[in-house]
Nucleic acid binder design. Structure first.
Lengths: 243, 243
DNA sequence: AACGATTAGATTGTATGCAAACAAGAGGGC
DNA sequence: GCCCTCTTGTTTGCATACAATCTAATCGTT
């Protein structure tokens, strides 16, 4: 009996958070989570059959999930040779922060530009308001999570905040590009979230304030500073414990 | 007889250029090509069964190819609803050029930095020299292709040049991010290559000269200018023929 | 006639079986 | 003893079969 076989759709059910339309997407989220948590260590081989048994699906959803994770840079594959967990993002932390600086400064600038157009144009734009409202919810949720010291959830909220800013920019290309590196960013962030998280969270309000005010240059600058502080905090943390 | 069935590995064989280790990658390249050439029009539905018959493979390689193209932004999919060709990149041309400006300026800057380290450090770095040599070949090949007015090939060479610069930066993250949008960039570029191509090609030598000289700021500036000129040429072309 | 529920068709998602390709080890030749 | 070759085992890649879901056309109701 090599494969699961029966209609075991129920198994563990996992997150009801996002709509789980297909099994393959849910499995991908689980594997991503396990990679970030270190269940699958960097450089470790990911064998399809083993994963299929472990997550109680057949190899097909596993393969699709691995391809998806490969496009996020969390997994590396070679034809006929299999997949392995990518090296720890520590290796390219410098690159990732530099990318974030240029990319997210651009999204913040764009978002501020659109905010200014919203105010002057008189066109409400329902989608903009919806995302803007969601940002307030994310910020409030973050305050609570920090109070309860649930830092793992804070890493997710942090990612959602930065995605929301990208969505405010109105550019699907920016969102898509941010998604591409979001896996490694979240991974990196989770390594330092207990130190950086509480300090960083209030800075988000400065970012959204500049955007609301429609100040393009300032929004870009504040976002750039925010990411630079994250970078510096990260490297300070690494220097503290080279154990 | 719904699927191909037999061991038809031979079919058309396509490009011997890149090693074709697995069928699915080759099929992906074909579909990408056909999307850019307009065989599959923007917004057109991509049905797996039809594609499977058309490219003479089963649905599995087709699915993998579609996922890969989805991560490049050339295809959009919804679970249980199927895939369709993404809207023409004309829609987000502005975004794509802005992304290229910030991203490729950064890669050029990094490449120049590494070039300076190469010169001073005395460490030859075999990989760097190999890529550097490949760039010369790309530039020479471009000259020939322009002479013969084979502009379709020029679009491919242009993409290879910009990838090579990213590889000179030494950062896999930058390369991976550029790959993410390379599909749409090439698509966009191919719409204007007959006008922009011959004009743009010599500019590549200015870029590599600044990199070789190790001038970080200048390399970034020249690359930024190069992309801005491409942008302006593109929008001028669109204004000329709104037909 | 317009609108909603329902059912039939088509299409995607997943499971399984088999073939191709890689990887490591045994055996023979130099 | 060392290197090369062949063989065997494991793993990925692909083809097919089937189940779950969506879509749209039909039928019934208001």
């Amino acid at each position: 009996m090599p494969e699961p076989g029966s209609r075991s759709r129920s198994s563990s059910a996992a997150k009801p958070s996002a709509a789980s339309p297909s099994n393959s997407i849910a499995v991908g989220a689980k594997i991503r989570h396990d990679i970030i948590k270190g269940v699958h260590p960097p450089g470790g081989k990911l064998r399809e059959a083993a994963l299929a048994k472990q997550y109680d699906v057949s190899r097909i959803p596993i393969r699709e999930a691995l391809r998806s994770l490969e496009s996020e840079g969390l997994v590396e594959s070679r034809p006929y040779s299999g997949s392995m967990v990518a090296p720890s993002p520590i290796e390219d932390a410098e690159d990732l922060f530099e990318i974030r600086i240029v990319l997210e400064s651009a999204t913040a600038k764009r978002a501020a530009k659109r905010a200014a157009q919203q105010s002057s144009g008189g066109v409400p734009d329902e989608r903009w308001r919806m995302i803007r409202k969601e940002i307030n919810e994310i910020l409030a949720a973050g305050d609570i999570v920090i109070g309860e010291e649930r830092y793992e959830d804070l890493a997710v909220l942090n990612m959602r905040f930065h995605f929301a800013i990208a969505e405010l920019s109105g550019s699907l290309s920016f969102v898509s590009l941010l998604r591409q590196i979001s896996g490694k960013i979240e991974w990196l962030y989770s390594l330092n979230v207990t130190r950086r998280g509480p300090q960083a969270w209030p800075e988000h309000r400065d970012i959204i304030a500049a955007i609301d005010a429609g100040q393009e240059t300032k929004a870009a600058e504040v976002m750039g500073q925010h990411v630079r502080r994250s970078r510096d905090s990260y490297f300070a943390m690494m220097a503290d414990r080279p154990a």
